[in-house]
């Protein structure tokens, strides 16, 4: 089974386009979900350690950016750490060197990620399947070695410590307050991803995922579309990475390491490819689990998360959100 076929299977049966959605009763459920999600996002720092809450938000956006490629275009990027990490370093550097307010520093990181994604994407979209994954991984490893070697800029394995967080002379060093300062940018990123998925462009992406040669016969330049979504995806990953680094006041090699790319892919598959919501739920579960395990003094976190990942792939190919939706749809159909 190819990656594109897996993504199609996970993202559901016939999604129904704009007309079908408008006719159906689904919008009510969608608004309800949105209300629940927003409430949860606003409530998180009250019920958990605020830095963890913001980590969840950042990884949710990173996973959503990976899902744009994996779930909606059928491209498995195993190199999103390159964009997340480049933005993390850039945002920290800009904020150190210029003292710019953090949104500008994050924006600079996002731009850096987008610029980097053009050549990488240009070369990667000529490949599909596992070869695409290998090309993205190879470039991400190059960025990792660059970050490791270029100590004068990145601090090597010591990392780069950023300045104190503030905005318009407001002290945001308390993670509780920074959460609410950073959350709007995460939500904007998620909104952008949603817009892309539910746009004519998004419709073409799914068509390309399901049948690239047919899309070409209809006159759609498949490589250009893939490059387009790759740059959008990298920008969102950059937005998430920049915010993550600012929130920690620190950019480290971990940000460009391949395990960060792997974690993002794992979150997407766990939550459900091609569902957006799944990535958000998956980010919550994975980040919480990792925090719980490390808090309990457990050293080999990767063994636990990796095993769960393998189980999900074997038992629930649709992931959490995909399986839930599939089950509900089946029940609904049976009632009809």
């Amino acid at each position: 089974m190819s990656i594109a076929e897996m993504a199609r299977a996970a993202s559901g049966t016939t999604r129904g386009g704009a007309a079908e959605r408008a006719a159906g009763a689904r919008p009510a459920i969608r608004w309800l979900l949105l209300a629940v999600g927003l409430t949860a996002a606003l409530a998180m720092p009250w019920v958990m350690y605020p830095p963890i809450a913001f980590d969840i938000a950042c990884f949710a956006l990173l996973a959503v950016s990976v899902d744009l490629l994996l779930g909606y275009t059928g491209l498995l990027s195993f190199g999103h750490a390159a964009f997340w990490g480049t933005a993390a370093y850039t945002a920290t550097l800009v904020s150190l060197q210029t003292g710019a307010p953090f949104p500008l520093a994050v924006l600079a990181g996002m731009v850096a990620a987008a610029v980097l994604s053009v050549p990488i994407g240009y070369l990667a979209v000529k490949r599909t399947g596992i070869y695409f994954a290998m090309v993205t991984l190879a470039f991400a490893q190059m960025i990792f070695f660059l970050a490791n070697q270029w100590r004068s800029v990145t601090g090597g394995e010591n990392g780069l410590v950023g300045p104190a967080r503030e905005l318009f002379n407001m002290d945001l060093s308390d993670p509780f307050f920074f959460y609410y300062a950073g959350l709007p940018f995460i939500l904007l990123g998620l909104l952008a991803a949603w817009r892309v998925v539910r746009s004519p462009f998004g419709r073409v992406l799914v068509a390309i995922r399901d049948n690239p040669s047919r899309a070409r016969a209809l006159g759609y330049p498949v490589h250009q579309y893939k490059l387009g979504v790759f740059v959008i995806s990298a920008s969102l990953a950059g937005l998430a990475g920049g915010l993550f680094a600012i929130s920690h006041g620190f950019a480290s090699l971990q940000e460009v390491y391949w395990t960060t790319s792997g974690k993002a892919v794992m979150i997407v598959v766990l939550g459900g490819m091609g569902t957006l919501w799944g990535s958000v739920i998956g980010a919550y579960l994975v980040v919480q689990l990792e925090y719980f395990l490390s808090d309990a003094g457990f050293e080999e976190i990767g063994i636990v998360t990796g095993s769960i990942f393998v189980l999900v792939v074997l038992l629930f190919r649709r992931g959490i959100w995909g399986t839930a939706r599939h089950t509900l749809e089946k029940l609904q159909r049976r009632r009809e």
Binding site: A18, R198, S199, P200, F201, V204, G228
Partner: peptide, 9 residues
């Protein structure tokens, strides 16, 4: 096709 900022409606 490239209009990623518009609704698919």
């Amino acid at each position: 096709g490239f209009m990623f900022w518009r609704s698919d409606r």
